[in-house]
């Protein structure tokens, strides 16, 4: 375990797929308790970066320390300390809400008693008691996303990776979801979130904009807006992209 004071510490991280550089020499640090945003178009390399940090994909080169562990050597330790919510809804649709929570509780090594209290806690929290024994497939997408987030938190990780958690969700549910993220941040958890919604980018403490595998901007949303003399993140994003193309 190495301690640099950062929750995530990345230096010159690169990932090739054949001759294609999906992530190109990326460096950044995430502080404890921060909401760190990754903004970029589809295919910019956000998901690949997240997958490398979660231990799902080996980097081609570069350095990455996550929650104090090296992504090359200690992926098993990383997996115990992080929560991860994939881009695609990845709970079991043919299992009930309760069964999904019980399954993931078991997978993270919780004992029977812990699973029971955790399940009750989560159902309370998600206000899903009356749907607890319905198949997950029957829930609206907004609820499914909240459920996915809660199951990612079952083992109480300090660092949570969210890969486009709100894609396909209506604005109301998106707002509710971000309230959850803020609550978690207030509890001292570090959130690493990718998105392609510009309004969501404003909610992040710090933001990096990715393009073609590279990080082209990294700062607080407010500072970025000042730097580019823009009113909204939408404008910032457009200007950043144009600047790179020019």
């Amino acid at each position: 375990m190495t301690n640099s004071g950062y929750t995530v510490h990345v230096e010159n991280l690169t990932r090739m797929f054949g001759t294609f550089k999906a992530v190109d020499n990326v460096s950044f640090q995430v502080k404890p308790g921060e909401i760190f945003g990754f903004l970029g178009a589809n295919g910019a390399g956000k998901t690949t970066t997240i997958r490398m940090l979660c231990g799902l994909l080996l980097p081609t080169s570069g350095k990455a320390i996550v929650a104090g562990y090296d992504v090359y050597k200690d992926t098993e330790a990383i997996k115990r300390h992080i929560g991860y919510m994939a881009q695609r809804f990845s709970l079991y649709e043919d299992l009930t809400v309760r069964e999904n929570i019980e399954f993931y509780g078991g997978v993270y090594g919780l004992n029977r008693k812990q699973i029971k209290t955790k399940t009750a806690e989560l159902l309370d929290y998600l206000k899903l008691w009356e749907h607890a024994d319905k198949l997950t497939a029957s829930l609206p997408l907004g609820w499914k996303q909240r459920m996915a987030l809660s199951t990612a938190l079952l083992h109480n990780p300090d660092l949570i990776f969210l890969d486009e958690p709100t894609s396909g969700v209506d604005p109301e549910s998106r707002r509710n979801f971000w309230m959850l993220i803020y609550e978690l941040s207030e509890q001292g958890k570090t959130i690493f979130v990718t998105t392609h919604f510009m309004d969501e980018a404003e909610y992040c403490h710090r933001l990096s904009i990715m393009r073609d595998g590279k990080i082209v901007e990294l700062d607080k949303p407010q500072s970025l807006k000042q730097k580019y003399k823009a009113d909204t993140m939408q404008d910032v994003f457009m200007k950043v992209v144009q600047k790179v193309e020019a």
Partner: peptide, 13 residues
């Protein structure tokens, strides 16, 4: 195919 394997692989199983 449905993507649930990804969620299992990211757990310490």
């Amino acid at each position: 195919e449905i993507g649930t394997m990804e969620q299992i692989l990211v757990s310490p199983v």
